[in-house]
């Protein structure tokens, strides 16, 4: 398969082969970073940093493991580290209200609003819970796989899922109450 060949060539220092891997995985990595960090600039920077680290530590990659999982693991750890170093964030309600475009019937705006709405809810979760939710819903990983990626136990993943789902459901409840 091409991917394995590119990985092997990249391990030998071939930048062109690594470029193929970047092209292949840039969207999943960027999406994870965006869902975790909530800002496009930060997501771009985290994506670049993930690939830089991946290239640097490519000799440690175990070919028995899917390359995508390995890359996502680097990205998730990097984003969690960034979020832990950040000061506690204010809820994004006000920020979103300031930055939102005025309501419009166009699809682009509707899509933007939906994206921002989901993002707003995610940003109110803790970094660890956000990572679990993102990996579960955007990448269809099982609890076991998420545990492997984040370097934690399956029961910890389930507990974070439990907490995050309840928090998100509560946010919907509050939102419904505001709309009424």
């Amino acid at each position: 398969m091409d991917e394995q060949r590119w990985v092997r060539q990249a391990q030998e220092g071939d930048l062109e082969a690594f470029g193929h891997l970047v092209r292949l995985y840039q969207t999943p990595i960027y999406n994870l970073a965006y869902r975790m960090l909530g800002e496009t600039m930060d997501a771009e920077d985290a994506t670049q940093e993930t690939f830089l680290r991946a290239f640097q530590y490519l000799h440690r990659y175990d070919p028995a493991r899917p390359f995508r999982t390995w890359l996502l693991s680097i990205a998730a750890h990097y984003c969690v580290d960034i979020l832990r170093r950040r000061r506690p964030q204010v809820t994004l309600n006000d920020e979103i209200a300031q930055n939102s475009p005025s309501p419009s019937p166009t699809d682009a705006v509707a899509a933007w609003e939906q994206r921002e709405h989901i993002q707003q809810m995610l940003m109110r979760l803790s970094p660890d819970d956000r990572a679990v939710i993102t990996l579960m819903y955007w990448y269809d990983f099982s609890c076991e796989e998420i545990a492997g990626i984040l370097g934690t136990t399956v029961s910890a993943v389930k507990s974070r899922l439990y907490r995050a789902r309840l928090a998100l459901a509560e946010m919907l409840k509050d939102q419904d109450a505001e709309e009424r």
């Binding site: 970047v22 092209r23 840039q26 960027y30 994506t47 670049q48 819903y137 955007w138």
Partner: peptide, 27 residues
């Protein structure tokens, strides 16, 4: 509802040219 919202949320794509920016930084 949370399940539906999350399951239907799309992947966000990066701005064009990310690959060349990554490779330039790597170089």
């Amino acid at each position: 509802r949370v399940e539906r919202v999350l399951r239907t949320a799309p992947l966000v794509s990066p701005a064009p040219g990310l690959t060349s920016r990554v490779l330039a930084r790597l170089e």
